[in-house]
Computed example of a mutant assay.
Amino acid sequence: MFYFGGMEHSQPKIAPEQRRGRAAPSCETGRFERHSRHAEWDGWDMAEDLPVIRTQISDERPRSLIIYNRSPDLPFDRSINPYRGCEHGCIYCFARPTHAYLGLSPGLDFETRLVARPDAPDILARELRSKRYRVATLAIGTNTDPYQPVERSREIMRGCLEVLRAFRHPVAIVTKGTLVERDIDILSDMAADGLARVGISVTTLDRVLSRKMEPRVPAPKRRLATIRRLTEAGIPVRLMVSPVVPALTDPELEDILEAGAEAGADAASWIMLRLPLEVSPLWQEWLAEHYPGRAARIMARLREMHGGKDYDARWGRRMRGEGPYAEIIARRFVVAARRLGLDRKTPALRCDLFRAPPRAGDQLDLF
């Protein structure tokens, strides 16, 4: 038997048999909480099977959906998130710390305690219909993946795409989920009018490494097949080598770019591994468990790029880092992308087609 109490020391790792198919080794309470909680032996010498941690989904009905940002590091100024938390469970995900705002752990809670927003399509339509709204490309998938497994049954992302198609609104999607293929019918219609692009993230071509690092993400070859299917349907796709992990995945950089070009991607980008807030200790726990012989080297390279720190959040530095190692990776990417024709500037998505669709009872336009 186990009891839970208000403990103020570091979180012990959760038994592997409890977290099968998960990346985070622990469930440390978020940074806003006064106490942390963990399982403690009660002293009874009795064998007991520990329950496997299952995915839980709750619903949230926000008042607004579109989030605006002013970051000079980002090519968009607005985004939406149909879900909070992500069952894909990528250990390196920079969005993990956002779960602390819910009073939940950026560790296992981020992967297992998800929040769905079933009213997202209706809220999005309301916001787009506002007279104050000014159109610009809307990004989806920049925080948590809109095509994580729960989307198969909930179809919230599909509902949002139907709204965007009706409003003829430009959208840029980032995903690792092959479920995006389900929405080819909508995306191909929008792409034909210059209203849609998709970015597919491929971190490694090594299936074993991928399963450890991003346990519930489709295999790398399957994601490459998704790039091919989307491009064959006329949907432009950017290959995203993200994140590049020094001394672990960086030797694959050119191979990933070649595989993406062969699959039909028309552009590519890269981002260095980022370890904000709770991500750093989670990442280091994961390294110690899976790649203990490389852990010191990987962290040394990261700290070299961030002035001796695990992470530097300053604009202009957080995505790529600084110093000789970062410059080498950047140069390798430029040379390979140019050779493969992935360095081209893609055309901007169209904003001139935007219009609110008529509703039942609306007065007809006479002109």
Rank of each mutant, 00 (worst) to 15 (best):
I91Q: 04
A47G: 10
E28M: 11
S36P: 07
I80D: 09
L65P: 05
G103E: 12
T112A: 12
W41Q: 15
D59I: 00
H99W: 11
D45M: 06
I57Y: 02
H38R: 15
N69Y: 00
R70Q: 14
L114K: 09
F32S: 08
L50E: 13
C27H: 07
Y68C: 06
F76H: 09
C93W: 02
S64P: 00
G89F: 06
E28T: 13
P62D: 07
S36C: 08
T112E: 11
D77H: 11
R63Q: 13
S105C: 12
W41A: 15
W44P: 00
I80R: 01
L102G: 00
R70F: 08
F32W: 10
I80G: 01
G30P: 10
S71G: 03
L74E: 06
S105N: 05
H35M: 14
D119Q: 03
S58R: 15
R34H: 08
A120W: 02
D122M: 09
C93H: 08
T98M: 07
R113Y: 06
A120C: 05
W44C: 06
G89E: 01
R54I: 05
A95T: 05
M46P: 00
H38N: 12
R113Q: 15
A116Y: 05
I57A: 09
A23K: 02
E33T: 08
L65Y: 08
R37K: 13
I67N: 10
P51S: 12
M46T: 13
F76K: 03
I80N: 02
D119S: 10
C86Y: 04
L108S: 01
V52T: 15
T98C: 08
P118M: 02
T29K: 10
Y92I: 10
S58I: 09
E28I: 03
D42C: 14
D122Y: 01
R31P: 06
A23L: 00
E87K: 03
S36Y: 03
R78I: 01
F94D: 06
